[in-house]
Simulated assay, not measured.
Amino acid sequence: MAHPVYGSAGWLAVGNPGLRTDGTLCELLRHAHRLARARHERRRGRCPRKRVRAGAVSR
Rank of each mutant, 00 (worst) to 15 (best):
M1W: 11
M1S: 09
A2F: 06
H3D: 14
P4F: 09
V5L: 15
S8V: 10
A9Q: 14
A9R: 13
A9M: 11
G10C: 02
W11K: 06
W11I: 03
L12V: 15
L12I: 14
A13G: 04
V14T: 12
V14R: 01
V14Q: 10
V14S: 11
P17K: 03
L19T: 02
R20G: 03
G23L: 07
T24L: 04
T24Y: 03
L28M: 08
L29Y: 03
L29P: 02
R30V: 07
H31G: 11
H31I: 08
A32S: 14
R34I: 01
R34L: 10
L35R: 12
A36K: 05
A36W: 15
A36V: 02
R39L: 14
R39W: 07
H40A: 02
E41Y: 14
R42A: 14
R44L: 11
R46G: 00
C47F: 13
C47S: 13
C47P: 02
C47E: 15
P48N: 06
P48S: 11
R51I: 14
R51H: 09
V52Q: 09
A54I: 06
A54F: 08
A54M: 10
R59K: 03
R59Q: 05
R59G: 05
R59Y: 13
R59S: 10
R59M: 06
R59F: 01
